[in-house]
Nucleic acid binder design. Structure first.
Length: 430
DNA sequence: GTAATCACG
DNA sequence: ACGTACGTGATTACA
């Protein structure tokens, strides 16, 4: 190291030591930096022909929808990309909702959730929603992407930010390859454009199953939540059986779905109001559901109280590897600010520990690929998922290494499970 | 530059 | 009585 930087480096090491972050720094973040650089340089191959033909198809649909919407609105100059114009049209000209939300800075609220509730009132609502969905895919993922392909490598090269998030997650930018569509049919079509770099190769994707809820089980030490994961049963069904007081075989789809929403809510630092909004039920019912949840998983309730207490006393909470999130406003007299910090105190150790764990997996996988002289490459990380560009003769080998290394990062009270899939593109690898 | 919206985990 | 799920980045409109 250059002598000029040694005093600064010593300062850093001293601070890290005092905060118990030396291992996090030396064993995780520093080794990871070079691996991320390698992934960025490696890049991902894009099927531009597929994107190009899909662009033509979607653009036609978009133009037709815009034409129909303008006809319905009787306004040829209507800009459907302007939330302001859409708001005025819906709430003032068409008066579709007399008690419309005028959220935030006094603007009409026209987001998807709000508009969906009005879809029965006027045919233009669905046209607006469809326009928005198509426009998003076209402008963000389809039409720009070919221009982001490097002349030198013929691939897209993201930047993984290692020091952006509050929890320890990575972020991805220019372009963001961590928010490529998958939820809708049209989104899936875009995923198909992410392909292996050699003609006969494969994409392998491996993702952690329920890692944050598993970490809740581990960190809370809750007996029954741990038992549910150790038994290998479907966690949402098991939760539904408990909170609705029915045998697992009799859990309905509706009950499982509600339990799933509740399990997500738990990770985010649930509130009765928030849960009632997402379940479309009354506050009293959602409050009762939460009470049942805590009755069945008392360790979870205890974990939440402990994290809030820890944040109040220490000013921060920690992940399994000692990464800290500072929460200076945990004692704020403003209830909204305080509550927000309390939810962060609950969520950050879970989200952050998951981030730590996948980082360790990445380091160990990278080393194995090198040691075993494999030519396949790790190309993307999407929070709980790793994506590999694989040559045909290494498919089985990569599958085994990736699954093994992801699952054996650390021994906890619950097993870590990684699901691994192979395909000719990123969609098929799910 | 900021707000609104929406893509992902 | 508050205001409410956690973490990101890109695009577009508009002051």
């Amino acid at each position: 190291m250059c002598a000029l930087f040694i005093p600064l480096y010593n300062e850093i090491l001293k601070a890290l030591e005092e905060a118990g972050q030396v291992e996090l720094y030396n064993k995780i973040e520093m080794p990871l930096a070079g691996i991320l650089a390698d992934m960025e340089m490696q890049g991902v191959t894009i099927d531009t022909a597929h994107l190009k033909s899909y662009s033509i198809e979607l653009t036609k649909e978009l133009d037709e929808i815009e034409r129909q919407a303008r006809e319905l609105a009787q306004d040829q100059s209507l800009n459907l990309s302007s939330p302001k114009q859409v708001g005025i049209l819906i709430y003032e000209k068409l008066s579709l909702n007399p008690k419309a939300k005028k959220s935030a800075k006094g603007n009409w609220s026209t987001d998807e959730e709000t508009l969906s509730e009005l879809s029965d009132k006027h045919p233009i609502i669905n046209k607006i929603l469809e326009y928005r969905a198509l426009k998003k895919l076209l402008s963000t993922y389809i039409d720009n992407f070919p221009s982001l392909i490097s002349k030198e490598t013929g691939k897209v090269h993201t930047t993984f930010n290692q020091t952006v998030t509050a929890t320890g997650r990575l972020s991805s930018a220019n372009p963001n390859l961590q928010n490529i569509p998958i939820r809708t049919q049209r989104g899936k079509e875009i995923r198909k454009a992410f392909i292996p770099s050699c003609n006969n190769g494969y994409i392998i994707s491996a993702d952690y199953s329920q890692i944050e809820l598993r970490l809740m089980a581990h960190m809370s030490g809750d007996k029954d939540l741990i038992a549910a994961f150790n038994s290998g049963k479907d966690i949402h069904t098991a939760t539904a059986a408990k909170v609705f007081g029915v045998p697992e075989e009799e859990v309905t789809k509706e009950q499982r779905s509600r339990a799933k929403t509740a399990n997500f809510g738990i990770i985010y630092g649930i509130s009765a109001f928030g849960l009632s909004q997402r379940l479309g039920m009354g506050r009293a019912d959602s409050k009762q559901l939460i009470e049942e949840y805590f009755k069945n998983y008392p360790g979870v309730k205890e974990y939440m109280n402990n994290m809030i207490l820890k944040a109040r006393e220490a000013g921060y909470v920690e992940t399994i590897y000692g990464r800290r999130r500072f929460l200076p406003d945990i004692n704020s007299r403003n209830a909204a600010v305080r509550s927000f910090n309390e939810r962060n105190a609950i969520n950050a150790p879970l989200q952050g520990s998951a981030a730590d764990i996948i980082k360790v997996a990445m380091i160990n996988i990278y080393r194995r690929l090198k040691i075993e002289n494999l030519t396949s490459k790790m190309v993307l990380q999407v929070h709980d998922e790793l994506v590999f560009d694989v040559v045909p003769q290494e498919v089985d080998c990569i599958r085994n290494i990736v699954k093994q290394e992801m699952e054996r990062v650390i021994s906890l009270h619950i097993p870590l499970i990684a699901e691994c899939n192979v395909g000719k593109n990123w969609l098929e690898a799910h």
